[in-house]
Design a protein around this nucleic acid. Structure first.
Length: 256
DNA sequence: ATGACGCCTTCCAGGCGA
């Protein structure tokens, strides 16, 4: 079974590109983020034609998360409890024997911006929510965390320490989530690999290797024990058939 | 120091992303 996460940066503008990826990689379950669309505007028919069901927690213009799946999924949670006003950023479904959540964590903007305090509080609420999931079950949290776990995950390495995405406050909150019994599937399989999932559109950042690893697939032990391969799909950070890519690459994992 | 690119929006300059 292939599971994935992808911040698509605008679902309607990315539809042809997403279809290309689905046909090529054939994932079974996909968490999408940054739909920038409402559920009413979500192109369910296009995904059905591609062989996917979709559960959507959308919002006009900003945020928005969804889960695509080959087999029908049942919504379990829409919105992070207590933090619904911070945007449509969490959707958990029951699908293919998994509890699968798609999360779009707040960006924070800058350390002195009100959104940074909101980001920290949001992560504390995410930890409280995840503390309630059954850690003996097969649980996957996939999404854009907007946190660089360690210097290895930033193109600037330790020079990025203390800047947004790389502060002690952010990293300690991310770590607190892992300490609930969740494993970063990519880092679990590849302890020393330096691969990124996001590159700025500007200044040729992608081709200059100036990226960050901020999109993560986390799994409980029941999932981590099954993982055979994790790919950060940088082929799909490139233009495809003239269509523009998201600034995030898809991340997928194969479970045995 | 700034802007760079691309998406969004009561349609177009400005907000936002990371």
């Amino acid at each position: 079974m292939r599971i994935a996460t992808w911040n698509v940066n605008g679902l309607r503008a990315r539809l042809d590109f997403i279809a290309h990826w689905l046909r090529s990689r054939e994932p079974d379950v996909v968490g999408l983020q940054e739909l920038k669309t409402t559920e009413d505007e979500f192109p369910h028919d296009d995904f059905r034609a591609l062989g996917y069901h979709a559960v959507v927690h959308g919002q006009k213009s900003w945020n928005g998360v969804a889960v695509l799946s080959r087999t029908p999924a049942e919504a379990e949670t829409r919105g992070l409890p207590g933090r619904e006003d911070d945007g449509a950023r969490l959707l958990q479904v029951r699908v293919a024997g998994l509890h699968f959540a798609s999360v779009y964590c707040p960006n924070g903007k800058t350390l002195d911006h009100p959104d940074y305090a909101m980001k920290l509080a949001w992560f504390e609420a995410l930890r409280a929510y995840l503390a309630g999931v059954d850690r003996d079950a097969a649980v996957v949290i996939g999404g854009d965390f907007n946190i660089v776990p360690a210097p290895l995950d930033a193109w600037e390495g330790e020079d990025a320490d203390g800047s947004i995405f790389c502060t002690v406050e952010e990293r300690s909150r991310y770590r607190a989530i892992l300490e609930l019994g969740l494993t970063d599937l990519f880092r679990h399989l590849y302890p020393d690999e330096r691969k990124f999932s996001w590159w700025d559109y500007r200044g040729g950042a992608f081709h200059r290797g100036m990226g960050l690893r901020i999109d993560h697939l986390l799994g409980t032990a029941a999932v981590a024990s099954r993982v055979r391969r994790v790919e950060i799909d940088r082929e799909y950070r490139k233009k495809k058939d003239g269509n523009i890519a998201s600034d995030h690459a898809p991340v997928f994992a194969d479970l045995g």
